[in-house]
C-alpha cells in the first residue's frame, strides 16, 4: 500500500510540475518544450519600448 501511495504521489507531483511549467511558459508566449525563451524558435512576449 505504502509504495503504491508514494509512487502515485511522485507521478502526480511530476505531472503537476509539467502542467504548471507548460501553463507558465504559454503565458510568456513559449509554446515548445525545448528552450528558455531566449533562443530563436520562440521568444517571450515583446517588451514595451522604454
Amino acid at each position: 500500500m505504502i509504495p503504491t501511495v508514494i509512487l502515485i504521489l511522485l507521478i502526480a507531483a511530476w505531472a503537476a510540475f509539467v502542467i504548471i511549467r507548460k501553463v507558465r511558459r504559454a503565458r510568456r508566449g513559449i509554446y515548445c518544450d525545448c528552450c528558455d525563451g531566449s533562443c530563436d524558435c520562440c521568444r517571450p512576449k515583446k517588451e514595451k519600448e522604454e
Binding site: 511530476w14 505531472a15 509539467v18 502542467i19 511549467r21 507548460k22 515548445c32 518544450d33 525545448c34 528552450c35
Partner: peptide
Amino acid sequence: VKDYLTKAGTTIFL
C-alpha cells in the same frame, strides 16, 4: 538532444 529529452520528460510523459 536536450530538446528531445525535455519533450520526452514533459509532453510525452503527460
